[in-house]
Design a protein around this nucleic acid. Structure first.
Lengths: 155, 155
DNA sequence: AAGGTGATGTTCAAATCTGAACGACATCCA
DNA sequence: TGGATGTCGTTCAGATTTGAACATCACCTT
């Protein structure tokens, strides 16, 4: 096979990559810890509630929800079941497609989110957003949006 | 209790946060997929091998390794056991501390890493590093290093 | 109208992650 | 020297994630 010489990461690039990787893991850990302590929620669960709250009719199709939250379909099925047990979400069959399922945010779900959101936003600010200059924020956003686009479209 | 008004994220900040979150999850997924297909490794396992390869004597203490790779101690115990079964890593009791355990990269582990690294770096480049301008890379690095520092020192 | 193709959500087994509890050893100070 | 305190790595139970397989239904072409 044709062996192409590997373009290794130089010191700067490796530092960038590892800083990104470590920060994402550490931040994830911190968020998880805060949500668990405050509301017994996991981060994916919070994201599900947040996305539903923003959606028209406070409801969303399972596949679409899995896509925006970035979890597998089976993980979403599991989490929606958990949230349903907790009374924060309900399942409805989609009127326009008998295969489809709509996840609907309940009143209790809305109240839960209202109660938890401030503390969550606090963490996101304290460790990420508020530590970036405007220029850094803009640079990061444009960079991240570009890579997200690439990751979503490819394969 | 004194209720401080929440400083919600504005549209730009929310976009930044979600782009970061989505990108990290999507990239993690893509990396995991590539490593699994290429070498049957998980991402944490790859990081363990990579860190050991860089370490003096190709060995590292468990706690320190868990810290740099950003996994819990129990997760590291589990993964080192897996890698030991695969013959890529060995455990040695630390000479200077009988409580300590040294994870040592084996010859097979070194060869495995050499074989897998190019493809892995390829993915990191293709979806992140090569998509950022020099300015974006620098901005992201400084921002990430600052937040990493904050997350590592606090609590 | 009927079959082929594709999408939808769930189930299942397997792997992995985490925090808490634990036993073993180090270190420090009286 | 002898506890008191802390660190180290492991074990354990429980929760979560994933991909593959599956049954159901939609859609499109003939």
């Amino acid at each position: 096979m044709a062996v192409t010489d590997t373009r290794w990461l130089d010191a700067t690039e490796l530092a960038a990559w590892r800083a990104f990787l470590n920060t994402s893991h550490l931040l994830e850990r911190r968020i998880e810890e805060q949500l668990k302590a405050t509301a017994g929620l996991t981060h994916p669960q919070y994201e599900i509630l947040a996305r539903l709250a923003e959606a028209p009719g406070r409801q969303m199709r399972m596949t679409e929800l899995a896509r925006v939250v970035v979890v597998s379909k089976s993980a979403l099925t599991y989490q929606i079941t958990q949230l349903e047990k907790a009374g924060l979400v309900e399942r409805t069959t989609c009127p326009s497609d008998d295969r489809g399922v709509l996840a609907v945010l309940t009143e209790a779900g809305t109240r839960c989110l209202d109660r938890v959101a401030p503390g969550h936003v606090e963490v996101v600010r304290a460790y990420l957003i508020d530590r970036l200059s405007r220029a850094e924020l803009d640079a990061m956003t444009s960079a991240m949006l570009r890579t997200e686009e690439a990751l979503r479209t490819t394969a």
